[in-house]
Amino acid sequence: MDMLAQALIQGFLIGGTYGLVALGLGLIYSVSNIVSFAHGDFMSLAMYLSVSLFAAFAMDPYVSVFITFPVLALVGWGLYYFILRPVIGSNSLMIIQLTLGLTFLLQNGLLMVYGGQMLRVPSMVESKLFLMGDTVMRWPLLIAFIASLALSALLYLMLTRTDFGRQIRAVNQNPKAAALMGVNVTQVRTLVFALGIALLAVAGSLLLPGATLQPGMGLRYTVITLLILVLGGMSNFIGILLGGYIIGLSEAVGTTFLSGVSGMILPYALFIVIMLFRPAGLLGSR
């Protein structure tokens, strides 16, 4: 019973951060119709930047996020403006292939710079534990959960209450009409892409304490993010957050209670089952 509670809480906490990562990709998809297969690799990039900042200045990942966030925003901006924008609208297949190319670029760029060995970045709170009832939890997980929840709430407020949010929703619902209202559609798409990538800096620093890094790990994060995105119905805010919790929970329960492979496959199996019954996503009406 203890183990179940432990797994459930852990999965729930990590699910919040997964949801945040997927929200970034969902925002990008909703305004540009792009699904990037390099999304997880950009999180790798952010995490490795934190590694360098730690190596050079002994900077805690929770502090270096204030550097990696603007850096990734800039990377996202440049990537969209110079590489993706010229191709957008011509062929959706090409965008997939392009982002697959980016996957190789990032993965192997990191491999060349940092080598293939596993790396860790210590954080001051990394090994701090606390008790929640009878279950022992790690502080970084709780911090990650609270920060992700707060950021998700901020994103929600931004979408519903601000002009930028209205512009994002307008471009999502009808780009032509948005342009006729005076919305600078290209600018909205570029900024949203930059934001989606920059959020990975936050998620990266939240997932960093206690994690081992390896240049090829991005693809698995990409797959998890994509599963969540589809579960959430691609652009449904609440659906995506819910998808994050489901994948986080199933991952934690699977690895705790099922041995080896079957445990790791649980999130995928659950995904297939859910999609067979709700092909438009958890909250989809179609």
Binding site: R166, R169, A170, Q173, A178, M181
Partner: peptide, 16 residues
């Protein structure tokens, strides 16, 4: 914009 409130639609009209 069908999935936005009338208020938000009007606010968008004056976004320039």
């Amino acid at each position: 914009f069908p999935q936005m409130s009338i208020r938000d639609n009007l606010m968008l009209g004056g976004i320039s």
